[in-house]
Simulated scan of single mutants.
Amino acid sequence: MKRPVLIEHEEIFEALDQRKLTPAMKAKRPENVLPEITNLSGGRKKKAATMYLYDAVSYWTGNDARSFQRMLAQTDAEEIHLHINSPGGSVFEGVTIFNLLADHDADVIVHIDGLAASIASVIALAGDTINIAENGMVMIHNPSVVAWGDATVMRKQAEILDKIRDAIVNTYETRTKLDRAALTTAMDAETWYSADEAILSGFAMHKVSASEATALWVPGDFEGLPAAAMILGKKPADPAPADPPEPENMGTLEDVTAASDFIARIRANHGL
């Protein structure tokens, strides 16, 4: 199903492809990190395919827009299931992935299995249907950049960040239930949404039972992570076993000594 795109993705590809990457830099980039797209069949009314975004959105992790484009070109599925557990990453890679999904003819069903944070929260909104695990979360915040230079350069970077933030807010405003003022405030504060809060705010539509998600990032990657997010993807701890009942007849000191001597002889005989 066609959805509004942010920017024509070919324009972003042109900019991304201008990155000056040496052979050594390219060699460090993992290949095929994103699993091959899995075509599903068997009793389904529509031809379906499954994709996983289970890491940072980045050229350096192999989870980038070009990889997404290649995989989408491999399928003629009428329905795409995208599973997300990601801390976010490159804004422009993520924006392009959003556009690729939004421009695709298939119905896109998003499953937030663990976390959809930062630009991954934008990608999630490309879904016609957005499901979130009952212990999943969504996080939104302002974009950031590492910059070096004089005051002119810093002012220019700040202007660029403002434009990027506005583009992201445009998508949030179109696809969620929050208005622009509320979204800007939430991004300024770096806001974390539980599954119920995500549905109430419009970042998801349906809550589903918890499922374990493989995370290649760690909670410590985020500063000020709420306690609820520290347990994402973890199974509930088993209850502590009850203390065993004390035996009616406790051994004597002589019993303990005899047992110790017996163990010592066994160890000696076996060279332990």
Rank of each mutant, 00 (worst) to 15 (best):
K2P: 01
R3T: 07
V5A: 06
H9Q: 08
I12R: 01
I12D: 00
E14N: 10
D17T: 02
Q18T: 07
Q18R: 14
R19A: 13
K20T: 06
L21T: 10
T22R: 05
P30R: 08
P30I: 05
V33K: 13
L34V: 15
T38C: 07
T38G: 05
N39S: 14
G42S: 13
G42E: 12
G43R: 11
R44K: 11
K45Q: 14
K47W: 04
K47P: 12
A48G: 12
L53S: 10
S58W: 01
Y59T: 05
N63M: 11
D64L: 02
R66E: 10
S67L: 05
S67C: 11
M71F: 07
L72K: 04
A73L: 07
A73T: 06
A77R: 04
I80P: 07
N85Q: 08
N85P: 02
G89H: 01
S90L: 01
V91K: 01
E93R: 04
E93Q: 15
G94K: 01
G94I: 08
F98A: 03
A102F: 03
A106K: 06
V108S: 04
H111V: 08
H111K: 11
I112S: 10
D113P: 00
I119Q: 01
A124H: 01
A126F: 01
I130Y: 02
I130P: 03
A133E: 09
M139L: 10
H141A: 12
P143M: 04
S144M: 07
W148T: 15
W148D: 13
A151Y: 04
A151L: 08
T152R: 09
M154A: 10
R155P: 00
K156Y: 11
A158R: 12
E159G: 13
I160D: 07
K163T: 11
R165C: 06
T171K: 03
T171E: 09
E173K: 13
T174A: 14
L178N: 04
A181E: 14
L183D: 05
T184P: 00
T185K: 14
M187Y: 01
M187I: 04
M187K: 03
D188K: 12
W192D: 07
W192T: 06
E197R: 08
G202L: 06
G202P: 05
G202H: 02
G202A: 05
G202S: 07
A204Y: 02
M205H: 15
H206T: 14
K207L: 03
A210C: 03
A210P: 00
A213T: 06
A215R: 15
V218K: 13
G220M: 08
E223P: 04
P226W: 07
P226D: 08
A229V: 09
M230Y: 05
M230E: 15
I231C: 05
G233I: 04
K234N: 12
K235W: 10
P241E: 11
A242D: 14
P245R: 09
E246G: 05
M250L: 15
L253I: 13
E254V: 10
V256C: 10
T257P: 00
A258Y: 03
S260E: 14
S260L: 15
R265L: 14
A268R: 14
L272H: 12
L272S: 11
